[in-house]
Amino acid sequence: MSSRKKVLLKVIILGDSGVGKTSLMNQFVNKKFSNQYKATIGADFLTKEVIVDDRIVTMQIWDTAGQERFQSLGVAFYRGADCCVLVFDVTAPNTFKSLESWRDEFLIQASPRDPDHFPFVILGNKVDLDNRAVSAKRAQQWCQSKNDIPYFETSAKEAVNVELAFQTIARNALAQETEAELYNEFPDQIKLNANDNNRNRDGDNCAC
């Protein structure tokens, strides 16, 4: 495929209110953490150019409000996503338990072409805190059970693993995007192959 073609990767960050979605996005894009960020109302996105395998791609990262009643409006922004990032707070078990329903909700609302192989990435955030309540092992097990979703332990506050996580997000989103393109150009033959590739890569890149 042509490397000159401009690529836009749409990434959606989901998770309960307060897990650190907005902070993670800002840490990745603006390289800073502030405890003056406001709770997200409605939706917003930030863009950032990154290099993935010698290609310059633009990541468009969408952040929405986490409280469940606002989700019915958030779904308007899911469409066309190339990757979905699910975030929980390692100090709040409830936010971990919610991952399943965030994932299901996304798959229903965004209805990606191939839900079984749509790229997700899980981030267990706030590892800088010492009142940890969800173990890395428990999180990893869950990720493995869901088709080997890549899992990262992050701290938006102390910029731990944020860069690495978003590199993986970008790579998997790009794979998804490329696959989607191929699919559109050659509807039938390519599909199965591309899926297989995508899956292998997901597995390799698991950083835990």
């Binding site: 209110s17 307060g18 405890n35 406001k38 709770a39």
Partner: peptide, 16 residues
Amino acid sequence: ERKSLVEKDVNRTDRS
């Protein structure tokens, strides 16, 4: 849950 939701939000309300 309600308490923690309130707590999280007041901590990011007009802190500047």
